[in-house]
Write a protein that binds this DNA or RNA. Sequence first.
DNA 1: CGACCATAACGAACATGTTCGTCCCGAACA
DNA 2: TGTTCGGGACGAACATGTTCGTTATGGTCG
Lengths: 235, 235
Amino acid sequence: MNERIRSRRERPAKAALTRAGIVATAVGLVRAEGLARVTMRRLAQELDTGAASLYVYVRNTAELHAAVLDELLGAVDLSPVTAPGDWRERLERVLTSYAEVLFEYPGLAQSALVARPSGERYLNLVEALLDLLDQGGVPKGQAAWGIDILLLFATAQAAEHAVVDPRASGTEEQSSQDWAALANAVRNASSETHPHLVAQGNDLLSGPGEARLAWGFRVLINGVLGTPRPEGAAT
Amino acid sequence: MNERIRSRRERPAKAALTRAGIVATAVGLVRAEGLARVTMRRLAQELDTGAASLYVYVRNTAELHAAVLDELLGAVDLSPVTAPGDWRERLERVLTSYAEVLFEYPGLAQSALVARPSGERYLNLVEALLDLLDQGGVPKGQAAWGIDILLLFATAQAAEHAVVDPRASGTEEQSSQDWAALANAVRNASSETHPHLVAQGNDLLSGPGEARLAWGFRVLINGVLGTPRPEGAAT
DNA sequence: CGACCATAACGAACATGTTCGTCCCGAACA
DNA sequence: TGTTCGGGACGAACATGTTCGTTATGGTCG
């Protein structure tokens, strides 16, 4: 019973439980062992405490993930904001960098959809995107709403690749499960009832992810630039 | 021990375990008690079997959700495909109808991101969208990739509203948790480091969800229409 | 200096998703 | 008809997220 107390005594250098400390430890664990291994119990064990204690500082796993993601967003390359060149191309670079971080841990993207990060790194990113859209002369109202869509798109695209089964980290081909099911369904579709589907079936599923992501960014940028908001403020 | 067997004997009309039967029962449960109550154990109990038995027909919860969603997609109104009028407006109507189904069960949307539906209802929806884009003269290559983005956007937008805590179905204001956190962070941002953010802070979070969703659809349609694919097939 | 109190920390408990080993039934086969 | 065999069904087990009631602690007020 007091072995826990003793073990605490043995390591007096251990910082008192703190939200920042919890998140930092979680980030370390993610980097060291992958997201799947970062369970509440494992994280608590790392902090020499019980899982229940974490809930004082973190509402739930999703919020923890959001906080971890915010930390990882420090790796997003914001330098294109002040670099020379076409603003669209620079905007794409920033977005791609953001997507790359997410693609490394698709599980985080999934959590980020339901519990958005709200830390400093995230604010920096939003600020950078607003800056770039402003450089491109995008009306401010459209820019504000557009950023939401841009980030949502990148996040969702990453979340789509979240592995259902956490232990399948090696040989790729993980998410081929449902992709194959869909491909199958498309192939088996009758050209009577689904003529367009059959005609464009290959096209629907074709192309490398990167190309589709990049094209998606361009679609969104063009759309945001050319679509006025319903009524009201549009500076 | 044999009480289970007896109870099976007592109801010989009960259909043998089938994927279709499982999904149908799940749909009924969702409609009757909400998605949160549809656990593997509860569903198995409804089918008078054990949870483990379900895994013969369904890979995991996400796949079950995808199958359920496909069933619910029967409620999507595809009539605008053949209705008269502006194709864009009709396309928006179909997408909005799809979004409405998802907004009713945001948890399904979340699952659908990682395990896409591949059933008949889903194929019908894709076919309808392809048809509408074709009516609008959207090049086929762009249409094929564009549909992915359109559906991803609607799905992600719905998933965003997934309640973290399943028991909070009454008083709305559920997802205000992280929204408030983000709003707070934006308010507290310094205009030194985040000038754009402070200037457009209100705009970032403003507006009713419907307006943002509709605007998003328009952004995507305009973007898809006006953004050629990198290289290759573009009929 | 001592009592008090808010609140963090904790252990135990519960429901859930998923898997494993075993059992059993029904069909093919001798 | 008796045997075998493959696969579905099942119970038990494990890890996880989350909550509840209790305990310990550190700061504050008398």
